[in-house]
Computed example of a mutant assay.
Amino acid sequence: MLATDAVPAEMEELDPDQRTALDALVIAAIAWCSPEGQARARARLLMECHGRFERACGASGKGASFPDFLDRLAKAPVGELLPGPTSRSKLWNARLLEDDGSAAPILTRLAMEASEQDQQVPGTGADLRHLHSVLRALGKLPSGTRLSRITAEAVQHAVFRALQQAGFTAYTEGRHALITQPVLARRALARHTQLVDLGVYTAISPMRQFAGWWAPCPFCRWTMRAVPRGRHAADLSCEDIRHTERGARFRMALQEGQWRLTPAGGEIREAPQLRPVEGQVALSYGLWQWIVLPGLLEVELKHRAEKAGAHVHLWPYGDSYDLHITKNGVTWRVDVKTWADPQGIAERMREDPEGCAGLIVVIPEHLGGYVGVLARVLGPHGARVLTDVSLIAEVSTA
């Protein structure tokens, strides 16, 4: 049996960290051997993949510096790269790249599993293809752009610029609706004309429903992934690991002839209500990841700053920055960054160094270890870097 034949079954055996690391390796390998795109854009994507790979490896000892990451990507078999226990499988012994830097057969198969194969079994790949079509319709992506080229900046820029065409009020309302209502009834969606025109909502993925039902994550309200456990039960959990760790994981089973959810651990004591799939539409995975998740922190910071006595405007001047906070003559111009990629954040903001002056770059408290790195890069351009906790502490004491 060839390594390519073993891919589907062996993918099922990977733990979450291994799957995340492998996803980063696959996208990095595609970027490495692909001639498309400018060298700078390819380097940016490789650095993003390195950041994701490092987070997945954690304390396993499989992490590497960026040069070592590229060297091992080109030479090492998959088993020497992934965190966690090793395996004797064909996949573990395969390399992603050939000696000449071209794609190995296993890389092609893994890429198919991530996109083309999901046309028969819709899932994350189907979500990303939907997002691809949305961005194409908005004029952001040229024909033929690979799924792996879609970045957070491209998504946010395209969607927000399209919303701005309807005017500031419609832009603010539309952006707020995307963040706080990632799943809508079709009738409710019809009331948001600007969102209907964008075409960003689609049918709920089969991977996020079971027996005709779905359930919202208690924290982000998006569809939780459903993993069947036989014909009469399923495990539901949020795609965001932080939400899962806090308790956004449940068991769905038949009880007295009705489907019910029960909590599976964490701080959640009451399960969300199951909802019928029929008549519901949801944002794609990419829009949830790149608009809903960062937007949740933006909206939360607004409420926390107002509670501390400040006056707050969300997304002032279009998409210039995220929050304009004032209190007792003090002003904070805040740009929120939630993605754990300090190189990417720095690179993005250095593209417009004048835009950094006077900004406060806020990252979540759990990414506080990046404050020093970002401050060294962005400080000379006039930006400060704080965690969300530090920002609210400043506002509270002003």
Rank of each mutant, 00 (worst) to 15 (best):
R229C: 06
G230R: 02
G230S: 04
G230A: 09
G230K: 06
G230D: 02
R231E: 13
H232K: 11
H232M: 06
A233Y: 03
A234F: 00
A234Q: 02
A234K: 05
A234H: 02
D235Q: 12
D235L: 10
L236W: 09
L236S: 12
L236M: 12
S237H: 02
C238G: 06
C238E: 02
C238A: 08
C238R: 03
E239K: 08
D240R: 11
D240Q: 10
D240S: 09
R242W: 15
R242T: 08
T244V: 11
R246L: 08
G247N: 04
G247L: 01
A248H: 06
A248Y: 06
R249F: 00
R249T: 00
R249H: 04
F250L: 06
F250G: 07
F250K: 05
M252F: 07
M252Y: 05
M252T: 01
L254P: 03
L254K: 07
Q255G: 03
E256Q: 15
E256F: 14
G257T: 08
G257Y: 04
G257K: 05
G257Q: 03
W259H: 11
W259N: 11
R260C: 07
R260I: 10
L261A: 01
T262M: 07
P263Q: 09
P263E: 03
P263M: 07
A264C: 11
A264W: 05
G266T: 00
E267L: 03
I268F: 12
I268C: 10
I268H: 12
R269Y: 03
R269K: 15
A271T: 01
P272I: 01
P272F: 01
P272T: 00
P272S: 03
Q273P: 06
Q273M: 09
L274N: 07
L274P: 05
L274W: 14
R275V: 10
R275N: 11
R275I: 10
R275W: 08
R275K: 15
P276S: 09
P276N: 05
V277W: 09
E278R: 15
E278S: 13
E278D: 14
E278Q: 13
G279N: 05
G279T: 02
G279M: 00
Q280I: 00
V281M: 01
L283Q: 07
Y285I: 00
Y285R: 07
G286R: 12
G286V: 12
G286F: 15
L287H: 10
L287W: 03
W288E: 15
W288L: 15
Q289E: 13
Q289A: 15
Q289V: 04
Q289K: 14
W290L: 04
I291L: 12
I291E: 06
I291V: 13
V292Q: 14
L293P: 09
L293G: 10
G295H: 00
G295K: 01
G295E: 00
L296C: 08
L296S: 06
L297E: 09
L297D: 08
L297M: 12
E298T: 01
E298Y: 04
E300I: 03
E300F: 11
L301R: 07
K302L: 08
H303A: 14
R304V: 14
E306A: 13
E306M: 14
K307N: 12
K307R: 14
G309C: 04
A310Q: 07
A310S: 12
A310Y: 03
H311R: 14
V312E: 08
V312D: 07
